[in-house]
Nucleic acid binder design. Structure first.
Lengths: 283, 283
DNA sequence: TTATTTTTGGAATATTTATTCCATTTTTAT
DNA sequence: ATAAAAATGGAATAAATATTCCAAAAATAA
């Protein structure tokens, strides 16, 4: 590999990124994986020893040193100082209380990204603290036992249904996404058997279509798992399973970060239940 | 001076401050000046050797060690790790230097919900700290100026494209989701005009289809905004716009919480730009 | 398929860094 | 003012860490 030390190596992290973008394809395999790791984990590079870093990156210390030299640094220590410099300019996040972003107390210079990521973090904290983990396990048990899982939701719930479908299928679990015209969905819902299951996802303002699908399934004794934002939701029935997740609202807009996390957990627990109970399905 | 090592020393930086407030008056002169320096310069403590720190603080290395021991730490290295933890994305348990969530060493009682929500929080922290906000504003400006926004992505990216499409449409912005068969998407991509725009979403392992759509659009001078996980992604081009978001991996599985937050921010900034620049569209 | 070149891992070595120990200085008590 | 106790500096030592070197593995070219 041709050396590049004819020019000065990047002395700031923000210059290292484009440098690697340009030279990445010319690096050997192992050095490429170091590059990816370094770009994705600059704090790990800045704060650990070469032994720790190389183990996390899946290479050896000598490969780490070789990577540094390939960029033009004198050694690992020279490169590490570049990462450390970039950390000196990051505002320290310690002891910052989460305050409600929508109560008008935020500083005017807070960016949209800051407000939404703080809201998302708060939503995740609420999920972790308030979620009924027994309910998640019971719901995942129901999903695991179903022959086929049907998934329905509209509007803001659509990314959730898509993701749940994608993740379940990735785990080799038979799942069908109910989408398209309302009449068509209702027709399909009428055909769901009792050994199958419906996952319904709906948030305020609730869509009548999803509620109707739930009504149909319950009247046919088809089990239903609901993902919704409140016990008071029209799809949360006392006689079936429901999981609650409420996203923080910023400027009248709610995100989906906590809901995606919950959907992922539901899919993973379902996969675990299947693998632990020997119910394997040929895919 | 009476020792305080009968109780455990502070393991997080935010607890060190009140500890020092309480014990400061009982410290000898030199240790007091180390305390002040440490509180005012936590990044210096975290990122330098004891020789450098003691020189900056105006004491000797043995005094620095003595200060650390007076607080209850085993030595300077023990104390420094506390300062380093406060600089990481998410505090890691003390003395678990080589362990991580995905190498099987985590405590057995941690639930799936806990692991994934912690990973999601870490992903959001990384997004907030590392995201290029100028790039987000520039990308949203491009979206705001486009007559119609086309959105493409497959697999795990599908919930993101669905959500971005939903949010943009909710804001009265003309957006079209490119989905369905690959050949059909490519046909549609060829018809995208230069006053329109493509948003491409792709994560490792990258799909060839999305990359091909980007190639087609760039060759026809159609602006592209890429949402991806790395500068080194095949859809991140130096001559166009790309936004990076990398989700933490747990057991080989990556969530979408940070990505959904970024997609929401992009849509909101786009809506803001439109409303601030008087480009209203009848819906 | 084989030979050559490049890449890589891992251990030895070199270097750097933290800690301990002791003499000196400073502070406090009588 | 003096003696005793506490605090401190600085150098030696111990420990930790980075770098180099060489053999083996992998990749590439013929």
């Amino acid at each position: 590999m041709p050396s590049t030390i004819s020019q000065s190596p990047p002395r700031v992290f923000s210059e290292l990124k484009p440098w690697l973008q340009e030279h990445y394809v010319n690096l050997p395999k192992r050095l490429q994986s170091v590059a990816v790791f370094a770009l994705h984990n600059p704090d790990v590079i800045a704060l650990n020893t070469s032994a720790v870093i190389s183990e996390k990156a899946g290479v050896t210390p000598s490969t780490l040193v070789r990577f540094a030299k390939s960029v033009g640094y004198q050694g690992f220590t020279d490169m590490q100082s570049v990462f450390q410099e970039s950390m000196r300019h990051i505002p320290q996040p310690y002891a910052q209380r989460l305050s409600h972003l929508d109560d008008g107390e935020q500083q005017p210079e807070q960016t949209v990204l800051h407000r939404f990521s703080q809201a998302a973090s708060a939503s995740l904290s609420r999920l972790e603290q308030q979620a009924d983990e027994t309910a998640i396990l019971q719901a995942s048990e129901q999903l695991a036992k179903a022959n086929t899982i049907y998934i329905a939701g509209q509007g803001r719930a659509t990314p959730v249904t898509t993701y749940l479908h994608y993740t379940l299928v990735k785990m080799g679990i038979q799942a069908v996404l109910l989408d398209g015209m309302a009449a068509s969905m209702i027709d399909k819902a009428r055909l769901i058997r009792r050994d199958e299951l419906l996952v319904a996802v709906s948030f305020s303002p609730y869509t009548a279509n999803t509620r109707e699908l739930v009504d149909i399934c319950l009247s046919q004794k088809v089990p239903v798992v609901a993902i919704t934002d409140s016990t008071l939701s029209p799809i949360a029935r006392p006689d079936d399973f429901h999981l609650e997740v409420l996203e923080e609202e910023v400027g009248g807009i709610r995100g989906l970060s906590a809901t995606m996390c919950l959907a992922l957990c539901l899919a993973v627990e379902t996969g675990k239940y299947r693998s632990q109970n020997g119910e394997l399905f040929v895919q």
